[in-house]
């Protein structure tokens, strides 16, 4: 199976970390439910055009943190994870996205007050449209 993982060249985070974070988000959001068979390290490496050294590291960390588990001879599967862990990942993913937006604004020399106003503008715009972001 293909995973909807997209590595960003401009992201300063190491590649294995990007793979880990995106897998966690896919698992926490339920896009990859518990029990899903994941691609082998070799085939994910091909898809992402990285070495198996990088992919293996990501899988090892995810396994250590309990997001996935490997059954000898059968493959690697999405593990059952606690609701609290799911929530933690979701909150941290959203916060990271907001932090990134704020960093962009700071780079464009906006003050925190101005950024706050922009953020509220975006929220109010969404509320007016019925609370859904454009797909």
């Amino acid at each position: 199976m293909k995973l909807p993982i997209q590595l960003s060249k401009e992201n300063p985070a190491p590649i294995y970390h990007q793979i880990e974070e995106q897998m966690k988000a896919l698992i926490a959001s339920g896009q990859l439910p518990a029990g899903t068979l994941l691609p082998s390290i070799r085939s994910l490496s091909k898809e992402l055009e990285v070495s198996v050294i990088t992919t293996r590291r990501a899988y090892q960390n995810l396994e250590y943190e309990g997001f996935i588990r490997t059954i000898q001879g059968k493959g690697t599967f999405v593990a059952e994870i606690d609701a609290s862990l799911k929530k933690e990942v979701k909150v941290s993913a959203v916060k990271q996205a907001i932090e990134k937006a704020v960093e962009t604004a700071i780079r464009h020399d906006y003050t925190l007050e101005e950024i706050e106003k922009m953020f509220l503008d975006v929220l109010n715009g969404l509320k007016a449209k019925g609370g859904k972001a454009d797909e």
């Binding site: 590649i15 990285v50 050294i53």
Partner: peptide
Amino acid sequence: YDKDELTA
């Protein structure tokens, strides 16, 4: 060279 280390 390790491919990913090299390109990084």
